[in-house]
Amino acid sequence: MGSILIIEDDNEIRNMLKIMVQRAGFSVQTARNGLEGVKTFRRAPSDVVITDIVMPEKEGLETILELRENYPEVKIIAISGGGRHDAKNYLQSAKDFGADYIFHKPFSQKEIITAIKDLLKD
């Protein structure tokens, strides 16, 4: 089974995602923002990174960009509930910058787990 890094500033969503992923049988690391996420990843790379987009310190798109530059193999799932623009805009950008899957908040457990499994299949 693979390891997942969850980068999300919202505590509840981060914890929920953690539980969802753990229950599905994956090992989990969490980070509260992009900066922390990239540091964690550097220290112990995960197979899949789930990242929010609008975050303090280092926003999601930036994070995706940096991870893609340095770790081309990493699988990325972007999630967003929107910000100054609608979530779909951010998610589209995330996809442009190399996210493998994008999900609009609120998302369902099933779609996230299915996506992770799909990414780890390769």
Binding site: M20, G81, G82, A87, K105, F107, S108, Q109, K110
Partner: peptide
């Protein structure tokens, strides 16, 4: 408010879904 709502709804739906499982 809608965007905040999305964030609030995410755990509600997520936990409900997990609990249902």
């Amino acid at each position: 408010i809608a965007h905040d709502f999305n964030n609030i709804l995410t755990p509600i739906l997520g936990y409900a879904e997990m609990a249902l499982d």
